[in-house]
Design a protein around this nucleic acid. Structure first.
Lengths: 362, 362
DNA sequence: CGTTCCGTGGAGAGCGCTCTCCGTCAATGC
DNA sequence: GCATTGACGGAGAGCGCTCTCCACGGAACG
């Protein structure tokens, strides 16, 4: 219906300029809302835009502005194991596929990150490009992608400590912001949770409800979050006179939570309180407790961490420490856009406070 | 370390050409592997590329090729309710935020879609741009994004039937492929599951293990998948002499599964088998059954649908109908890239066969 | 009444790449 | 031996946009 005005294909600035009887530069000024343009001419241009059905060509704009107006959302793992799994790429009909991506989304945590990122990006007309970086090949891809200018910066969520990606990005002089403090110092901004405070809340809650023989299932200790949650829990316990806290290390998975609970129960059959460093492990622990004839929270109180959807899938629903993931992800995004606006700004960190959510399990 | 060879900023084709002592065109030919280039020159160019640390500028390439080499992955809802929720965009610290995105990722199904898409895209050097289209504003954004040439096509996963997005995209002459058949016919390719066959597997399994009083919790009946699963289930039951199947409609959520189970149990206290149209509802059903003193599968056998992670979070783990989501998502992606390669190709549909996964619940 | 200045629109030079066209040179055919 | 062909490299014209300059005119000032 607008074909009469455009030479061929999509309408360009030139076409709009012709239709409005002004120059290309003026149309550009109106479209980008820059400098003063006579209101009458502005109106004429706007009309011409809608008549021609003009849409700016992003590639052309990017070429001169040197900005893609896009950011990458990278889920990054350290992965010795996933590194090898990459071979099985092609098929993977029966759930094989990329074990890494599947594994990432099994934890509802990542969905909350996406929600926070998208909420912040969307009102600004931006959308994240989703990338996975679990092998060194994939990490190079991410760096290449950024270097090609397809994205202006990266939001990096590492699933393991010792993730080499942040350092790679920093070396290449590319912009990035991390979710969670990197294990090794890297000159990159990040957001994180006050994990120790969260663990303290869990400890105080268990003590407060009268538990006397309390144990904990920690996260992997090579991950800063796992380490911090354990430290925070033990410190608080010590401050309340509990010198010794039986501890078994888990891997943040439901299975590892089950195995850990089995061990704790075998070694300390009389325990009456458990703090699991995330909800998935707490869920596993609840299953084992029930199978061993312990009622939750009657015989044993259980507290989780994260307030993920696993907390609600559990019966009774889990008392847990809520991490404001969406807010953290939004802040992470804000930090990145800030940095893109002022590339020589300071490297900062923003730490969020957790919150105890009391439900049925403790 | 390579600064001596580049004029300033990132190295360009020109820089590489100068370093290799050839023309820009030749470097382009080598980089893109097009036409025959003398092996000796090829080698020289390659060396120059690595010496200069050259990376092609995608914006410049896109400008002339008119291809972004990117696709959008759109999660689309029809949403009357989410439409209004858009107001609360800004803050949303405590989990409020965009109820739509949060809701999308609560079901592990979407993570599997992402996995399949990424697995197919990655070996081809592509990455999906994640977009949500739950309001008409957002739908326009998606269309604008595609029209700006920021993505070559869209992979659309609709959460509701009557989703207007596919039609919008088709009208604009943009490329798209859908996950699941649209409620209204639209000239766009799609992949889907043989839902009826899946329901048949569930019915036969329940009958085969000796259940006599079988009920079902259906999905929302305005969604083609919900409808098809119910139809398939009833048909098979009828074929085995069960003329009447007590049915309660659910909404594919855990809560709706609980409510539905309560009702079924109230009206048919003697039932001994339940088919829930997805795992989340089956999980809810199991919780209710246990609370009402029924053992699973001893007193009541339960079969779910999807084989999502909820199936494993359940105790006992759910017997369920597996939907090869990853494979379907990969095929959807293949169809889109095919279409981009041959824009005048046929509109097709690919239907996948489900598979029964027997675990503890039935 | 001349000078300065600000507000505003146009001209045009690229941004870095691809791709068509053309030129060159060696191999081949009659 | 000369025309024909095929293989291969170079030249150069854009792709659609932004943005820096410059030109122009009217207002303000001395």
């Amino acid at each position: 219906m607008t074909d009469d005005l455009r030479s061929a294909g999509a309408p360009t600035l030139e076409d709009v300029a012709r239709a409005a009887g002004v120059s290309r530069a003026t149309v550009s000024r109106v479209v980008n809302g820059v400098r003063n343009v006579d209101p009458v001419i502005q109106e004429a241009v706007r009309r011409a835009v809608s008549v021609t059905g003009y849409t700016p060509n992003r590639a052309a704009r990017s070429l001169v502005t040197r900005r893609a107006d896009a950011v990458a959302l990278v889920v990054s793992g350290a992965g010795v194991e996933p590194e090898a799994a990459e071979e099985a790429e092609g098929t993977g009909a029966s759930g094989g596929g990329s074990s890494f991506t599947a594994q990432v989304f099994a934890d509802p945590f990542f969905g909350r990150v996406v929600t926070g990122v998208v909420n912040y990006l969307r009102p600004r007309g931006m959308h994240p490009v989703l990338m996975f970086a679990e092998s060194s090949r994939a990490r190079e891809d991410v760096v290449a992608y950024l270097r090609q200018g397809r994205a202006d910066g990266a939001l990096v969520v590492s699933t393991h400590a010792e993730d080499p990606l942040p350092a790679l990005i920093a070396e290449a002089g590319l912009a990035a912001v991390l979710f969670a403090r990197p294990a090794r110092p890297v000159p990159v901004s990040y957001v994180d949770l006050a994990h120790q405070d969260g663990a303290r809340l869990a400890a105080e809650h268990l003590i407060g409800r009268g538990c006397r023989r309390i144990a904990t299932i920690s996260g992997p200790l090579d991950v800063p979050a796992g380490q911090a949650r354990l430290t925070g829990f033990r410190d608080t316990m010590a401050r309340h006179g509990h010198a010794y806290v039986p501890t078994v290390e888990g891997q943040f998975t439901q299975e590892s939570g089950e195995a850990a609970m089995e061990r704790l129960l075998a070694e300390h059959p009389d325990l009456d309180g458990v703090f699991a460093a995330n909800d998935l492990m707490a869920l596993g622990a609840c299953h084992v407790l029930r199978e061993r004839g312990r009622s939750v929270p009657g015989d044993v109180a259980v507290v989780g961490f994260d307030d993920s959807s696993a907390a609600l899938a559990c019966r009774p629903p889990l008392t847990t420490v809520r991490q404001p993931v969406e807010g953290m992800a939004a802040e992470m995004t804000r930090l990145l856009l800030d940095r893109l606006a002022r590339p020589d700004g300071p490297v900062t960190s923003v730490i969020f406070e957790p919150e105890l959510v009391v439900r049925g399990s403790a």
